[in-house]
Amino acid sequence: MLTRKQHELLCFIHDRLAESGVSPSFEEMKEALDLKSKSGVHRLISALEERGFIRRLANRARALEVVKMPDQAGKAAPTATPQIPVAANSNDIIELPLHGRIAAGTPIEALQGTESLAVPAALLGPGEHYALEVSGDSMVEEGILDGDYALIRKTDTARDGEIVVALIDNNEATLKTFRREGSMIRLDPANRNYDPQRYRPEQVVVQGRLSGLLRRY
Rank of each mutant, 00 (worst) to 15 (best):
D169L: 11
K30H: 12
E8W: 00
S46H: 03
L17G: 06
L213G: 01
A76V: 13
L57P: 04
L57R: 13
R179N: 14
R62D: 15
D71A: 11
L175N: 02
I108V: 09
G127N: 01
Q203A: 12
D137I: 07
E19Q: 08
D15G: 09
Y199Q: 07
C11S: 14
P97L: 02
I168A: 10
K5A: 11
E8I: 05
D71Q: 08
D146Y: 03
P70W: 14
T155S: 09
D195H: 08
A73T: 08
G208A: 08
G161A: 10
H14L: 06
P85T: 07
A61L: 05
A63N: 13
H14R: 14
T174Q: 07
M139V: 06
R4W: 01
E27R: 15
A32Q: 13
R62C: 09
L124S: 03
V119M: 01
R4V: 08
A80N: 14
S138M: 04
R56E: 02
L117N: 00
G74I: 07
A32W: 09
S211P: 05
E50V: 06
M1I: 02
R4S: 02
G136K: 03
Y217I: 10
E109P: 06
G21M: 02
A88I: 05
L132N: 09
D188N: 08
T157K: 10
N89E: 11
L210E: 03
S90Q: 11
E19T: 08
A121N: 02
L123K: 15
T3H: 06
L9C: 05
T177M: 15
G113E: 00
D146M: 02
L151E: 01
G127W: 00
L123E: 09
G74D: 05
A18Q: 01
N191Y: 06
E109Q: 13
L98F: 06
Q83Y: 15
A47H: 04
R192D: 11
R16G: 04
A118L: 08
D160F: 07
L151N: 04
I163R: 03
E162S: 14
E19I: 06
E19H: 09
S37P: 02
